[in-house]
Design a protein around this nucleic acid. Structure first.
Lengths: 242, 242
DNA sequence: GAGTGGTCTAGACCACCAA
DNA sequence: TGGTGGTCTAGACCACTCC
């Protein structure tokens, strides 16, 4: 079963063995997989090597580990669909569900604009900006972590309480017209800070969208980074054929 | 510097130390970071613990390791922009650059349709489908790995050579009109097979798009999974404000 | 208290790279 | 040949869960 003289590392071989057991249905969603001790005995390998194999399955999202309990094959949960090609996808979806989005504000501060963000927002170095961090959730389940930068000149009277509801609703209420957003999307391993804000384990990959949002008149309104929790949500849009 | 009695693991503390050295510019892109041996001596920790810290920086894309050479801070490379909201983003971009896309066909076979894919394609169980794997690249740099399923009934005369150029061009040449595609996007740790096809290291996160592509008349043309290489490419689209 | 995973160690052998 | 990272070991202590 495991060839210790193979050029393929033992942990990779064991990972493949477990993978096949999961894909073949030998191990079903919700089942506990053999413990590190069992595996190390069964295959005559060290516990650390067995752990490395299972850890790899963990970050791939196939199993879930709990200290004291064991390692279980992940269930295929029904995920909530969010349209990622709309700025207000989350707000819209939550409203459709008859709920209101809960926003937790983790940071709200006025600060001098750092060089790199000045360029993006098109303002002078040293000008004041708002820096905000929010977690947006439904039923205590975090959906997105949002880090956002807006010029103070544009929103001089912004208060933390305006962030508890839709930020764009507040902006619209000031008579500003919001245009489109350039969105760059990538897969990232988040910092421990972001991971814990989204209640995720270390080294789980997540979607990141970096956005430059414009006003209809063309000036830049906001630069933001949005981290999406894939555990409970899935992200869709339509790609055009032509 | 490192508190061995802290509830924060030593490897996480060391990772943060190195992270700050990189973010502060103390370690610049291209610089070699201290070796595992140096770090284990300096902080009186074991080499395995130092390795764990550096491995974490590796999957975050901050450093690159080479056996025999050392670990180096990643440079900020200029990436090629690909529009992810168009089915033919890659082909279009390559043409704009005055090149033709190079496609490598890794698999091309006729097979009975598995249950889950039957549902998606809207065909009967046991009907024949084409299963294809391609890597699409520019200058030997893989951009995307594509796994695709199409009913044989729709394309009875498909040949492997039709996959060397644009697949959609071939389909159009048959008089079929391609519509839009439902695209679900996620961040994933790829299998070792996909990672090596894209010339990536183990456990690096990548973007995955799962697509259901329709013909204009409404029937399903294709189910595909596209894995995007973020090392050299970045993926953009416009999100609508309203 | 028994079993689980989380961390850490000190040492080993290997493959790879550069000088 | 010496230094690097890649793998693996056998053992240790801990925190957690469940009974």
């Amino acid at each position: 079963m495991i060839d210790k003289n193979s050029h393929i590392p033992i942990y990779a071989q064991l990972e493949n063995i477990l993978l096949e057991m999961i894909e073949s249905g030998d191990l079903k969603p919700g089942d506990m997989i053999p413990s590190e001790n069992e595996l190390s005995k069964k295959y005559s390998i060290s516990r650390m090597t067995a752990k490395k194999a299972i850890d790899s399955l963990t970050i791939k999202g196939l199993v879930e580990r709990t200290q004291g309990k064991g390692t279980y094959v992940c269930s295929i949960e029904k995920k909530i669909e969010l349209p990622i090609n709309r700025l207000r996808g989350f707000t819209q979806k939550v409203c459709e569900m008859g709920l209101t989005p809960e926003n937790k504000v983790l940071a709200f501060e006025k600060m001098p604009c750092p060089k790199n963000i000045c360029k993006i927002l098109g303002i002078k170095e040293g000008e004041s900006i708002w820096r905000m961090e929010r977690v947006r959730q439904i039923d205590e389940v975090p959906a997105v972590f949002e880090e956002s930068y807006i010029s103070v000149k544009l929103l001089p009277n912004l208060k933390e309480k305006n962030l508890l509801k839709s930020k764009f609703d507040y902006i619209k209420s000031l008579g500003l017209e919001i245009g489109n957003s350039e969105r760059e999307i990538s897969a990232e391993i988040p910092s421990d800070y972001v991971a814990s804000a989204l209640k995720l384990k270390r080294n789980e990959p997540i979607l990141l969208a970096e956005n430059i949002t414009y006003l209809k008149k063309g000036t830049v309104l906001e630069y933001s980074k949005i981290y999406y929790n894939q555990k409970k949500y899935k992200f869709k849009f339509i790609a055009e054929g032509n």
